[in-house]
Amino acid sequence: MTTASEPLTPPAPRHDLLLGAALLAVAGVYVRALMFTPIEARQGAAQKILYVHATSAIVGLYIAFGLMAVASLLYLWLKDAKLDRVAESSAEVGLCYTTVVLATGPLWGKTIWGAWWTWDARLTSTLFLWFIIVAYLLLRSAVEEPGRRARYAAVLGILASLLVPFIHLSVYLFRTLHPMPIVLKPSAPSMPSEMQLTFFSALLAFILLFAALLRARYRMATLRDLAAHREQEHG
């Protein structure tokens, strides 16, 4: 499918209100988490890292990656370039979230487990997801023809979603048979209600941020494709 119809661009508003609101929401969560949420007695203040680490993981791994996989599947079926742009945008925003997870994870792990990295099943799966999304984005940049680029990316996106359970299972099996030294076992998630409220507010704020970033990234992709199309026309 080489001659795609020109992508329509909605006239973009001057200021991105959604993004502004999302950033404010995150800032609000920051204030609540750092100043108005009690410190967990056994783990100390570092336990608060979970409010940004775990929530970013939920959004990045499940929402962003899931959306990328579903959009990829739908693209192969319906061949609509909009779906390809959704997949691409979701992957890139997901990479941002995954980067946060990988950057904050060791900080939390050092205080809880006494080690920066312990090949914990979830963190390792996140690491591999990071590699896969980087590979996805590099594949996209290596293919010039838009139709082929979309198809290749969609294939990789779908295969990657099949891979993730295998990685998770393998690392989990590896870990249960090779127990890693644990200094302090993290307490089971029976958080008091104030902490639960902080956690869920953080989750909502980061979901809102994801929606805002996704929309901004999607618009950028639409504009880029429009420019590429115009360039092709004028030679």
């Binding site: 590979a135 590099l138 594949l139 293919v143 891979l163 990685i167």
Partner: peptide, 18 residues
């Protein structure tokens, strides 16, 4: 693609891990 020798390992290795 333009970077075939680099791209093949990069795409494949995560899948080879399990």
């Amino acid at each position: 693609t333009r970077m075939a020798e680099l791209l093949l390992p990069m795409l494949s290795l995560p899948f080879f891990v399990p």
